[in-house]
Design a protein around this nucleic acid. Sequence first.
DNA 1: CTTGGAAAGTCAACAAGGCTGACGTAAATT
DNA 2: AATTTACGTCAGCCTTGTTGACTTTCCAAG
Lengths: 164, 164
Amino acid sequence: MADAPGGEGLLFLTDEQVRKGIEAMFFAYRGFTADPDRILDGMNYGRAHHRAIHFVHRSPGTTVSNLLSILGVTKQSLNRVLRSLIEDGLVRSEKGKADARERHLYLTEKGQMLERELSDAQRARMRAAYRAAGPVAVTGFRQVLEAMMDPDMRRHYTRLKEGG
Amino acid sequence: MADAPGGEGLLFLTDEQVRKGIEAMFFAYRGFTADPDRILDGMNYGRAHHRAIHFVHRSPGTTVSNLLSILGVTKQSLNRVLRSLIEDGLVRSEKGKADARERHLYLTEKGQMLERELSDAQRARMRAAYRAAGPVAVTGFRQVLEAMMDPDMRRHYTRLKEGG
DNA sequence: CTTGGAAAGTCAACAAGGCTGACGTAAATT
DNA sequence: AATTTACGTCAGCCTTGTTGACTTTCCAAG
């Protein structure tokens, strides 16, 4: 089960091996979201709010339509989330200067505090997993994930990666 | 950006690097579920049905309570899904012989056909990602995912892995 | 043999977070 | 001036998760 590279190029592509990867994704994603979910449970927020907060933090001043395309939901769905975040003073929405139809989104101080709390928890788990698996594994991890994305999403991912 | 092991043990653990991993998980999981979602859309089924089908296929004869603990949902939630699958003749539920309170679950022929269709699609993407990233990356991928799981889920994952 | 508790199923009610469709407004573009 | 774009909003629906209460079935311990 060494999964050695090279001559064994076929072995690791058996249905069973691929199925194990599928299950790994399923179980790992649960762990991935568990900590932020726990924090948000009790506030009036959920995973959708977390995602909005994450990407506004990541790209301050991003527009609603850009966020829509990153998150892959409808504007009605995003708007419900965004409205509550704005009402609660976590997100600030500013009319665009160049194009006044656009709204540019920013985290307020309060929003940054929650973002920090959520991402601290999520990063702690990710960091622990990275540490346990080692640097080589981390590189492979990201390579496979990137190859798994739809092209549109990979575009977003790469743009964020470079920007970050 | 060689992410070499050893001396650079700190470099790849910067917050930014970890954030990229978080985003990779987010975008990749979307791709991961996209193909089965497309297939199920139009049938009366959703992702929850897919999960049930997957794990019944994986462990034929598993009990409801085992499935509950794997899926991490309430029995009411699972029951709704299971009921429709049984009514539609995709899943067969059998009273246990040793313990007649338990129900053992199996895919019918029809259920196996849908399972095959769903997993063919999902495996095709996973296989392509594996091929693109290479065997070493695949090993790392699974190592990181496994380290990311909650212990309880890792137990399930490992048991399935050995059983498979 | 009775009884306590576990396993399973079911009903009702609710919430989060997706979706579609329709409509309105302001601003940019043609 | 007309059209398109970006955004917001209302209304209604679906899936999939939740709690709580209750029943039936059955094993196992007293």
